[in-house]
């Protein structure tokens, strides 16, 4: 009898844990939504979404998210342009070209990169990369979108490389053997046969990389110059959605419009990353089949 009760109790706990995972996601969403709605009660949603000025402490304050959204998009596009070709090429090299021992070293290095805390990369950006870019490209400041893009590219690389490499390695051997049998070189096989076969996994890796870049906070907070105006090039200071929340939350009064506006920014961020990860997951599921 005691066995039955114990079984029942344990099963309850286990189910509850599963339920809690769902509850957390819903709670996160609801909290963001509730606080956002408090803003939209006094500040029209349309103005928030299409406003081109983010002036939270002026009178009256303006909470136009466009400059922040553009800041995020600029930095992300910059990072993706850098890290997708580098990442996919490295994944191909590691999976198909590098000899076994060297492959192991390369993978360890990628793991090391994955484990470097973002605040340390931000620090590197401040003390070295920013000043370096400033003098090299004669910029007015090294604290700009480009610095952020470069660092974020390296933050997304481990994700892209490891998932793409998995996808390339898991292409059935028979594909390769068939191509070799027809006299194709290793490169022709890799480029024409393996890469297309691994494309779902590679796309998933890129989506996950984008998700990581958009959501990254500390690097952009530290190196992109914190200027919430609409950027025109990557070479000028800008500010992302994430950096705005991180930079301004400490200074707001809870319950103020500014406070709610930051939650609304968080909500936009949550929705964007949710969609991106959903797409990535769909592609990942496809590779499993």
């Amino acid at each position: 009898m005691s066995r039955k009760i114990r079984e029942f109790g344990v099963e309850g706990c286990i189910k509850l844990s599963g339920l809690l995972v769902i509850i957390f996601v819903i709670l996160i969403f609801l909290l963001l939504l509730k606080e956002s709605l408090s803003l939209f009660g006094v500040y029209p949603f349309k103005d928030f979404l299409t406003g081109t000025k983010w002036l939270p402490v002026s009178d009256p304050p303006k909470f136009g998210i466009v400059p922040l959204l553009l800041g995020s998009i600029y930095v992300t596009v910059g990072a993706i342009v850098i890290c997708v070709p580098l990442g996919v090429a490295s994944a191909m090299f590691i999976a198909e070209v590098a000899p076994a021992g060297f492959k192991h070293i390369l993978k360890s290095l990628i793991e090391i990169l994955a484990s470097i805390p973002s605040v340390v990369l931000g620090f590197i950006g401040i003390v070295w990369l920013g000043p370096f870019l400033k003098t090299t490209f004669h910029l007015s400041t090294g604290m700009c979108g480009l610095t952020g893009s470069l660092l974020l590219a390296y933050m997304a690389l481990p994700t892209i490389i490891s998932i793409s490499e998995d996808a390339i390695v898991s292409v059935p051997k028979s594909y390769k053997e068939a191509a070799f049998g027809l006299g194709a070189t290793r490169w022709q096989t890799l480029w024409r046969i393996i890469l297309p076969a691994a494309s779902s996994g590679i796309i998933a890796s890129i989506m996950l990389g984008i998700g990581r870049v958009i959501g990254e906070t500390m690097v952009v907070l530290m190196v992109t110059g914190n200027s919430p105006i609409i950027p025109h090039t990557l070479l000028q200071p800008l500010r992302t959605l994430t950096a705005t929340i991180a930079g301004e939350m400490g200074e707001t009064v809870s319950g103020s419009d500014h406070y709610y506006a930051l939650f609304a920014t968080g909500l936009i961020l949550f929705i964007i990353t949710f969609l991106i990860n959903l797409i990535a997951d769909i592609y990942l599921q496809r590779t499993k089949k």
Partner: peptide
Amino acid sequence: LIKLSVVNLSGVPSIVYGLF
């Protein structure tokens, strides 16, 4: 739903966790 939630949690930006 649980599986979807796990996928979603893994993608939530760290600053949103901070807000939450």
